[in-house]
Nucleic acid binder design. Structure first.
Lengths: 312, 312
DNA sequence: TCAGTTCCATAACTATTACTTATAGCCGGA
DNA sequence: TCCGGCTATAAGTAATAGTTATGGAACTGA
């Protein structure tokens, strides 16, 4: 049984006439006759009674008609559903992001994304960069925003921007604008636990500056850390954009670090061989444009403008 | 989109591997690859992510899988339903019979038929022979039992048996076993109305015998006629088998007619070009065997044994 | 890191089959 | 009884699904 035969069959059902049916499906009449005949042979029954003037369905034909119509409708719907998916009018996108980026980039990004793709079911998981990589490799995530470089060649990476870290000081502390990394010595710090990538990065930067940070409090949520700092628990180091977004209404000061300025590259990653639909492709562009908007809002920040063209 | 492609597609879905899928559907791996590729091209999307070790569905693939499975299941069911119809495990059979035959042959016939084809929906319409012919021609009836000869060549006719008519007398009348047709003169008769074929036949026979029947009462139902005769309203002429079946419990006598004996041929008719399923074909054979049973029950009856082989 | 293995895609060619035109045969209507 | 309309069959052609051979990418294990 082939779809062609079913299409011809239904054409004959509608036309009640082989010749006109053959015109409807744009083949010659013999061709259609042969195909109907093959279908009848396969099913072991006549499907039509050839009554000279008209051609009418046998009982078997009636049975087949109902089923065939349903089957063809099913496949039409399939094609349409796949098209919509491709045009991203519906579907699913599972994103993994590192928690710092999650805190400032994702909220406006999600709102833009939902505006552009209202019917896409978007899922955002904030998780450590390593988990994002493994999630992508295990095909649990569609795309990921993670720290660069990514330690595998099975992922395609698109650099997005650099994240710069700043020192956040409690209000009463001395009002300096800049601080050398090595001057962090002895400063009481509120940081995330040791398994967080941000913490690891800070420790690496400190090591490079030849010092060891003095951590007086560990908290997982950046929001909690900021509150702790505002409460006088100590200083902290967080991504600049995140801090500047939260600054209004809080009595905190931002102090640039230098010598060197701690920073890391953030990129979009996805499985190289994976097919990405429109929504997934656009997600990367939205990352860049949203980031640009955030930057202009806080002109003090810098970071190289990344060029991204996400395609498979 | 072709069913072949969908079958291959589902094979890959199950095997998660092109090579093994190709073995499952008994084609070479490149052939399968090309077909999947064609499907992907047609839908404008990748259906699988080729991840080296495994092959996993994209979202589009997942969508297609669901629809394709439903469509194929639908067609499997179609094939099965058609098979069952062919084997007559289910279906429909609409029969038209002349009323006299309906009265004695149909009851035992229906019970046998139902035993043989329990799931067939059987519909029996008792109607004039002419209506049966037109019903067959208009494709309203599947088969018909009607008087021979049939006045059209578009029907295939299988002679079944001869129906012989006998005179039915009220109990008190003289006890004779046989009566010449011409001796019917002056006998008060209870017959069906003039548009019934049985009545027409009787009138023809009478005309042939050179007499005119004296009808004192007209009734449509044979059962009512018998009661009227038993009640002394007069005599009647009815098919022999019908009368003998009803005789027990009724105080009536049967008198053979001769010179000539009024009789008519009954046959099975169906549209020559129409496809007949097993149930329809068997219906004719059941007619014959049921008739034979009836005859042995009332050995006095005669009638040529008809040879029937009903096929299309 | 490098050979060995597995797996999918592509190319070139063959076999199959669906299509075409031409024509025969049947049926129904004038 | 002939004519017009219809379907089935036949013969030949075009389209396509199939094959084997091979290339390249990716994982595996020494």
């Amino acid at each position: 049984m082939e779809l062609r035969q079913l299409r011809y069959f239904l054409a004959v059902v509608n036309a009640q006439n082989f010749t006109r049916a053959s015109e409807a499906v744009h083949v010659s009449q013999p061709s259609l006759s042969v195909q109907i005949g093959a279908l009848e042979d396969e099913l072991g029954t006549r499907l039509f009674d050839r009554l000279g003037k008209k051609v009418v369905l046998t009982q078997a034909g009636e049975v087949l008609r109902d089923h065939a119509e349903r089957a063809l409708r099913e496949l039409e719907q399939a094609a349409q559903a796949v098209q919509e998916l491709h045009g991203a009018s519906r579907g699913r996108l599972i994103v993994g992001t590192i928690s710092t980026v999650n805190s400032y980039l994702i909220p406006p990004l999600v709102s833009r994304f939902k505006q552009r793709f209202p019917a896409i079911h978007l899922q955002v998981h904030a998780q450590p960069s390593a988990d994002i990589v493994s999630g992508l490799l295990a095909n649990r995530l569609d795309v990921g925003i993670c720290l660069l470089p990514v330690p595998t060649d099975r992922l395609t990476v698109v650099p997005l921007f650099e994240e710069r870290l700043v020192l956040v000081a409690p209000p009463k502390s001395e009002r300096r604008m800049r601080l050398r990394m090595q001057d962090l010595v002895g400063l009481p710090l509120v940081l995330m636990p040791a398994d967080y990538c941000l913490r690891k990065m800070i420790e690496e930067e400190c090591a490079e500056a030849g010092i060891q940070p003095e951590v007086v409090l560990e908290m997982t949520s950046p929001e909690g850390i900021l509150q702790a700092v505002a409460g006088g628990a100590g200083f902290t180091i967080l991504p600049e954009l995140y801090v500047r977004l939260r600054l209004p209404g809080k009595d905190l000061q931002v102090i640039d670090l230098y010598g060197p300025t701690p920073r890391h590259s953030v990129g979009l990653a996805f499985l190289t061989n994976r097919y990405q639909n429109l929504a997934a492709k656009e997600f990367g562009n939205l990352c860049l444009s949203t980031m640009a908007t955030l930057r202009t809002t806080f002109k003090g920040s810098n970071g190289k403008k990344a060029v991204a063209d996400i395609s498979v």
